[in-house]
Design a protein around this nucleic acid. Structure first.
Lengths: 208, 208, 208, 208
DNA sequence: TATGAATGAGATTTCATTCAT
DNA sequence: CATGAATGAAATCTCATTCAT
């Protein structure tokens, strides 16, 4: 689904997400008002459905949130994995790809990741646990990339776990301010954040 | 109120906040359930008040949120200013103080800053505008510190505005995972984040 | 339908009812939850049908209830008539047969008669009127049997109408507590209730 | 509450019940439409309250039913006890009083006892269990009266438990047909049912 | 007849807020 | 300030029923 014809995932320019129209409508409402601030009525309206029509597709508001967040995390992990694989054996390239992918994902899926990260507390225990596990899995991919670079001597980083969390947080936070029509292009944002991430792990940044 | 007897604000070890008991109770409820997920009844109960008793103090739920957020931002700005002043004329010390202060504030005022940053969308236009202005003011203080360091040749940073936002985001994100009883002490967290911030602005970090 | 090969209805050991599978499924749901507490969906599920499939057979929930109750009353009257005919000319035997038949019917058709008697108020006017007429017809058969016995001098009963109602109520109430796997056999229950009925109409009960 | 000035409960002519106005309004709606057929709206309307006004007094529809049924059973048991005590030591008088009291209660509290007996299945497990226990307690009082009469030689009854259930059922069923403005007075109904009850336990009925 | 989608009406319940005492 | 009563509006969700395929 996120793979192109050659079997190589094109993680740099993400295509449209795979959400159902209903979930996409819900996403907009959640992003704007938050889970508790979003009414089933407003979601149904955004989806062009009647309220019972919405319930025909999803059995509860909670189900909608869960499906939304899970789909987002699945996609993010799939993209990040592809980006890591795509880098081959070079530790620096792997780290770069992972970070760049994360940054680009949070721009291309701005609302998705904003809702996923901000509505954790609105999820019921099971869904929340699953979400946390996926978030940790994602963060672990960053940490792994750091550790490989440290082992190879490319990075200087005393606490890879903390650095991974910081880098991930940095990328997540992009979603809350980046606008496609803002002053910075996605390429610029990605490049600058890659620079911050390299600095955090003590990689050469090209600065003099 | 945040100054000690000698007129020097002790920004490293923040004392108790200056919230009224009612606002403090509301803070806990907002932090746990979000603004829309918090009922006036639950706030009143947490405050040990009756519902009309609560309305005697604050005229609406929105007023409570506004007072809470404003108080938090006022305090944060006051502390950061004090930390900057406290540094004297050394550009590096000024940057260090500002960043350390920010990191510590988000640990000592975890719920406060979490609510302030996550419930922006629940505020009515005027209050939101004021909040945004305060947030920008805070970010500007970081940016100023960066610019001074760049001018003095201590830092290497091509985009001080972006770097300031990144650093501020990094500090804000601490509030969503740090626990006082967690594995890392506040001192450790502050030190490591100071390291990340220095790296971002191209300051010497002491790494070889 | 309730007659055997010799043209004699076997009213002592009732066979299976003549309900369609759908009605039988609905019966279970009505018995457990009541008419208003039963949803069309639950009935369809119990019948192994889709919702539109159910509507193919019955045009509304009300139709289902009506068909169910009418079938039950038809069967009860048919059985009671057969039991009365079966007794020949002896007034006491006729009364005994009618009462025993009633008691046995409310055990063998426990859910049927419980729903029929308890959901009268859920029926629309026409159906309810028909149901009341059938109930009265049934009660009249008891009353007739009493009057014949009084005329013959076998019974002593000043108010045959009241006695008939009391006896009918007594039999109806069996449906709400009798369980086939309970401590009392159907034969025992029938015998004891026959005893109560005889006592009510002042017939000799065999007690000393 | 059910005692008069002399400390003697006047169980023959029951006064008004002790229901709150809200419960009394709900009683009428439940009696007419059943629990599932009664909407909170209709109850509130009958009580002259807004819907939230109703919720101010009772936290749920189930709570209303439970309070209603429990109050009814409490009152019935209190009256029956008083009637039994009122009879002194004579076994026949005790039985008579208990039965007459039961019959009169189901006339004076027609809707109450109809709802209590017909909505058992609509009660949640705990409330239902309590109701069943109270019903059994009531039935046990009838059975005890029978056993005393059998021991004294006044009654002839082989299965006091069954007879008690039959008599209780008979009295309960009065509630589903008796109308104060009907052809029979309460005194007549009570007298005739007392006759049926005596016949069931083999007591002399005065018939020739 | 099953599947799948849809809906107007209405269900129970909770909300923020107010007022009299 | 607390208590208790009240309410318009709106929340989530379910109902019986229908229609196209």
């Amino acid at each position: 689904m996120v793979e192109d014809d050659l079997g190589v995932t094109r993680w740099r320019e993400l295509g449209p997400d795979s959400l159902t129209p209903t979930l996409r409508a819900a996403l907009g409402v959640f992003a704007e008002n938050g889970y508790h601030g979003a009414s089933i009525r407003s979601i149904a309206e955004a989806a062009g459905l009647s309220v019972p029509g919405l319930y025909h597709h999803y059995s509860s508001k909670q189900t909608i949130l869960t499906a939304l967040v899970e789909s987002t995390m699945d996609e993010m992990i799939a993209y990040t994995s592809a980006a890591a694989r795509d880098a081959g054996d070079d530790p620096v390239a792997r780290f770069d790809n992972v970070v760049e992918c994360l940054a680009r994902f949070h721009m291309a899926r701005r609302d998705h990741s904003f809702v996923a990260s901000s509505e954790m507390r609105s999820m019921e225990p099971d869904a929340r646990a699953h979400h946390v596990a996926q978030r940790d899995e994602q963060q672990q991919m960053v940490e792994d990339a750091i550790r490989v670079g440290v082992a190879s001597g490319d990075f200087t980083c005393e606490h890879p776990g903390d650095a991974a969390r910081a880098i991930a947080s940095l990328c997540v936070s992009i979603a809350s301010w980046y606008r496609p029509d803002g002053p910075l292009s996605a390429d610029e944002v990605a490049a600058r954040h890659l620079g911050y991430a390299r600095a955090i792990v003590g990689a050469p940044t090209g600065r003099t």
